[in-house]
Design a binder for these strands. Structure first.
Lengths: 233, 233
DNA sequence: ACAATAGTGTCTGTTAGACACTATGCC
DNA sequence: GGCATAGTGTCTAACAGACACTATTGT
């Protein structure tokens, strides 16, 4: 039990430390995840979550590793990024005992079509063409569950919208993420109470031959931090 | 960017992988944390969260590591144990780039006084006698915040009570954890709705020269899993 | 009987959802 | 003016908190 050897740090070196990122985006009102074909063994050629080793030399912490992975492997910079948790164990990676520090990121649809790497596969989370390697299915499920849960009481889904959006659009995003319809009056009342949106002066968006909707954007204070509410919709 | 070398796993070995456990208990209606004097450098002799290296040989995953640390270092077995998150970076440990997989555990007061190791220091989370080493203050704060947040909408605080408890006792626990008083009628209505308690037949507890209170216990289904509710108290 | 707390019935203010209505753009 | 959707006013049902009341024990 007592381990007086000061070199204990070197006595347990056989743990693989990686980060994996669940990059989520909304397309056609359905949640999609960005996957990459693995270029290395194990599971070479299979679609998997973007991930990689932690680079102790360059990454200040694991969140920086996740941001670097997103930048290098997906071409995505500074999205909403949050720690999801760790996934660890002897069996999840055939190379040995491993730890994956999992993060999830939310981006607006247009960001992913414009600047992201073309080799990214954007696939609906509910209908992946092949099973994910490692325990990436569990990680993805945890990310989706987290997003759904936080959507109930926070501004999190706003990060799936673009820079500016109309209230009907935002409601559609909330509904798509949570998988249920929301009462329009309740939704707008809540958005009003939360006091996190500001109208873009004079800007409206028409979606057809009818009354255009007012455009809104997140107030600066909530662009990185979330806004929480007490009750649901 | 491409790393064809199959020995990349060995190319990044310099990451210290540990688990740390925030062991919480309620004493005198105040949240307390169990700390241990560190037996090794760095911070030898300082009070810190119980923790240790992951033992890839014996631990199936990091939660098993946390359970082992609790057992070996605190003498506590099978409490409520949940992952808190990871804390990582180049600077948090003077030995180098490190990852702490943090867990938090809840135990009943009597469990800690009876079976736990005597060298455990049980101190109020709001008034520690000395600053914690590493980033343990952040980890502790995250655990307390998580407990408070989950107490709003779950059965989590029940794990701070003993095997059997009265409703007034349980309400006091909820109030102590959340730091605010709860309406008695609302509290009992909620407990009733949640349908997670069962009366211990014929068992009551008297707290003075007045009407004794009915004893309750968690239904078996909720002894390890949490029960969630939609709204607060 | 009294003190003190356990436990419940009921009222009231608040909140979320249903519905209907008005507003505004394009044809 | 008609149509389709944006946006709002208002009613109602559900819910949480306040309060008062009854119940039950020891002294």
């Amino acid at each position: 039990m007592s381990r007086p050897d000061p070199r204990t740090a070197e006595a347990y070196p056989n743990i693989i430390c990686t980060v994996d990122v669940v990059l989520l985006v909304l397309r056609n009102n359905a949640l999609h995840v960005a996957l990459l074909k693995r270029e290395q063994m194990p599971f070479k050629g299979r679609l998997a979550l973007p991930g990689g080793y932690i680079h102790a030399q360059e990454d200040g912490d694991a969140e920086a590793s996740a941001a670097r992975v997103l930048r290098e492997k997906a071409g995505v910079s500074s999205p909403y990024l949050e720690q999801l948790g760790s996934f660890s164990g002897a069996r999840r990676d055939p190379r040995g005992w491993s730890v994956s520090l999992a993060y999830y990121a939310l981006v607006a649809p247009d960001l992913l079509s414009e600047t992201a790497h073309p080799e990214l596969a954007i696939l609906p989370v509910d209908a992946l063409p092949e099973p994910l390697p490692f325990d990436h299915a569990r990680i993805l499920a945890a990310a989706v569950e987290r997003l759904r849960a936080k959507s109930q009481y926070s501004s999190l889904p706003c990060h799936l919208a673009g820079e500016a959006f109309t209230l009907p659009e935002l409601q559609q995003i909330y509904e798509a993420v949570m998988g249920s319809t929301i009462n329009k009056v309740s939704f707008r009342r809540k958005m009003d109470e939360m006091d996190m949106l500001e109208a873009v002066p004079g800007a409206q968006r028409a979606d057809g031959p009818f009354r255009p909707a007012q455009l809104y954007r997140l107030k600066p204070a909530f662009r990185t931090r979330l806004k929480l509410i007490n009750r649901g919709f």
